[in-house]
Design a protein around this nucleic acid. Structure first.
Lengths: 210, 210
DNA sequence: GTCTATAACTCGATAGAC
DNA sequence: GTCTATCGAGTTATAGAC
């Protein structure tokens, strides 16, 4: 929502848009350093010089793409975290939403974490959106459930990090997991599809009061 | 490669070693694409040409470093997974060992996952060690505990992926977590120190039989 | 707006003196 | 073994015709 404002993506199917789409594809697969303007131009079906005509430099183009990618990831967390609903349902929805977004865009987390580690200064200064999720409400909700004895005591910060980790990491480390577990690509696909149910089950089991 | 059979690291404090150390530092921070031979030479305090004298190409040098890094990570998993001990103790030790290795070498997981995604072919062919951990024994142990009713039913593959995710991801996504949770670097340090206890507690809680 | 051509620069790699 | 000097390929970016 409010897609325009801070300007993330250009509109309609213009040359500018074609460039942006191509850049999105290439950058998200290969990161900033691993990508070349030539490859982006080729994929957009236009000339290299046009990239500089629409986006002044590689840095600027990268910045646009990175902002769009991050905005997508952030809004997915916000939406669920800030809505009012019972804790168990919120957890279920959070896991479902989060794994959904990531499995449809498996490059997102890898892109974010590798770029944030390579250029932390720029990332925080120019790429991070300013409407970050505010997890305080969620924290209070967890504390309330603990006080009422409906769930086992746990620090809410750790609960949320546990959950995000289990949602995200298997997709980021897919090739590693496949090797470790000795799975074929097909088996891995099935395995990742099971994650939503398995993570939900695991988190709720850990929260059962003693 | 006339070097050494399984060859991971050169010995003593020779020029070769200085190059290797410098390359280790630079590659692990910036990856293959983000690093330059010049920077490695500078950090080693020697000339660029010497890099090519000892390691024929950037690719070869990278391969050596990557193998050493991966071997370290893999042996940490092996050690615990394959030893015989009660399940609860094994889980405790696994988490303790794993978080220990990663917190002392925070770059390892990020390095592995970003490089494996960028060059999967080479990674599997030339960098992956052949003595991978064999988790089958661990799987059987979990199944046995479930059959005996001592833990709640769970697919062992998911249990191990849950656990690894919670150990690794917070270190990989540290800057993201810091932003999301609104923590200062100091608070983040404390938070990561708590992880060993928190993850252990969480996993064991989830495994309690109903 | 879109193209070709090319300038300016960086980087990996090699030649050759010592 | 270690250095300086340089080549050649590849990359970002710009100039200028259309």
């Amino acid at each position: 929502m409010a897609k325009r404002e801070t300007s993330t993506e250009p509109s309609s199917d213009t040359t500018e848009q074609k460039i942006f789409d191509a850049a999105h594809e290439v950058f998200s697969q290969k990161g900033m350093d691993g990508s070349t303007m030539q490859e982006i131009a080729d994929r957009a079906g236009i000339n290299k010089a046009l990239l500089h005509y629409y986006y002044r430099s590689k840095d600027k183009l990268y910045e646009m793409v990175a902002r769009a990618i991050l905005a997508k990831a952030v809004s997915a967390i916000r939406e669920v975290l800030e809505k009012e609903m019972p804790l168990e349902e919120k957890i279920k929805r959070f896991i479902e939403t989060y794994i959904g977004v990531i499995s449809r865009n498996t490059f997102i987390p890898l892109f974010i974490i590798s770029e944030i580690n390579k250029h932390p200064d720029r990332f925080i200064a120019t790429i991070l959106p300013d409407d970050l999720p505010r997890p305080q409400a969620f924290f209070q909700q967890v504390e309330a459930e603990i006080a009422a004895g409906r769930i086992r005591p746990i620090k809410p910060q750790h609960l949320i990090v546990h959950t995000i980790s289990m949602c995200v990491f298997p997709f980021v480390g897919k090739p590693m997991m496949a090797v470790l577990l000795g799975m074929s690509p097909d088996e891995m696909r099935v395995f990742l599809k099971e994650r939503t149910a398995e993570v939900t089950d695991f988190v709720l089991a850990a929260l059962r009061p003693e």
